[in-house]
Nucleic acid binder design. Sequence first.
DNA 1: CTTATTATTATGTACATACATTATAACATT
DNA 2: AATGTTATAATGTATGTACATAATAATAAG
Lengths: 243, 243
Amino acid sequence: MRKYSIDHKSPIPLHAQAETLLRQLIQEEDYRNGKVLPNEVELAKKLAISRTTLRQSINKLVFEGLLVRKKRSGTRVAQNVVSSKSNNWLSFSQEMKLRGIPIKNFELHVTWVTPDEELAAFFEIKPDRKVLKLERVRGRPDEPFVYFVSYFHPRVGLTGEEDFKRPLYEMLEHEHSIIATLSKEEISAVAANDDIADKLRLPAGSPLLFRKRYVFDPGERAIEYNLGYYKASSFVYTVESTR
Amino acid sequence: MRKYSIDHKSPIPLHAQAETLLRQLIQEEDYRNGKVLPNEVELAKKLAISRTTLRQSINKLVFEGLLVRKKRSGTRVAQNVVSSKSNNWLSFSQEMKLRGIPIKNFELHVTWVTPDEELAAFFEIKPDRKVLKLERVRGRPDEPFVYFVSYFHPRVGLTGEEDFKRPLYEMLEHEHSIIATLSKEEISAVAANDDIADKLRLPAGSPLLFRKRYVFDPGERAIEYNLGYYKASSFVYTVESTR
DNA sequence: CTTATTATTATGTACATACATTATAACATT
DNA sequence: AATGTTATAATGTATGTACATAATAATAAG
């Protein structure tokens, strides 16, 4: 039985099926390490679709920078780790999906806490007003690679009973009509303390990329304050700027 | 006489010609204001290329977000052309000045080196062509906090005799007519190795913010490849992004 | 006059096919 | 052992064709 296959009866276009299939395929250890993909003619035959259709899907991934083609030698996975582009505002879930990496939630805690001074000031609320705190350890199925702590403004209207396994911004948009459009971020490096090292399964003292995000709605009103600790080896933040 | 046309004898692929042609076409007032482009079948006929080939070019522009397709109504220029690029284009010197912190150069080495494969590829030069390497350890008067390694494209025309204590981009602009306008950056965290730890007066293994910059001129030609290792405690990278 | 129905017209999907180009490997030559 | 030549195996380019789908326009029905 073949691992990946395409359903010719499905209403989903073949090239779209091939696309998601490729996204999964390139998660495999071998390909990730530079093994060339099956050549187009062969692969098309195996999937029982035409080469043109297959190329349509490959092209898309090439455009996205996930695959690199080379004449004669073949097509392989581009050699870069998960990155975040500041231009196209993607959430963690979206980004992982784009790369065909399944997300695993290793930990998820929801609590109501009293904000510290800084947070109360950012949210412009009284210090005794409780806010929702969401802690998550997420990553690919085999390893956690980020520890998030989020605080939400009471205005958002979260109860704490929501399903936080779903994409967060999707939920905010649909169920709470909250649209996040502006984010101010600060990025620095820190050493993992015992607690975080444990969560991310790292030796204490390992370097982490630390990202603080202040998220706003279109009226520049504060929505979320987010702290992210990324395992350095599997995360790169990319920025493109012009002047 | 037709305004735009395609040369079937040119060595440039038809779809590439069609692409540049489209890019010109959509500069026209009418299209920019929302007029639909000629439909694919017609346009293909006019340009004397197949619809498939034409679609190849259109697809590229659609992917770049320049064109928007709509069934039945046709294809037109996307209306949201305002790009939301981050504006943090500041050089180290400018940034320090802005904060009123005097700069001290702790180390400064200039050498000519043979580029490694990656660098030669980025600069698009032969691997035996030597490039100028500039290493600097800089910081505030009392403590170093960044270790830079820069490589410059030979095209820039640096001799190695210049005064590298001056603001670099100012010098490039005035003395070499090189204007850096685009920079692509990758930010991650690493642990300090012995060498760098020593330069920055830190214990080995301390977390550092590691910033790779690819700097380009207005023609998107590579100018500089820069590696920066920042002492985590004294450097934060900020980004603002909208969607 | 409003609401279905149908036709039209654009893009969307998919295939089979042919030949060009180019990086590499295999081989032959000096 | 270095250099030149040829084969080959992958992607790259390009065409022609067919039918599907969806939004709109035109028309018919109530």
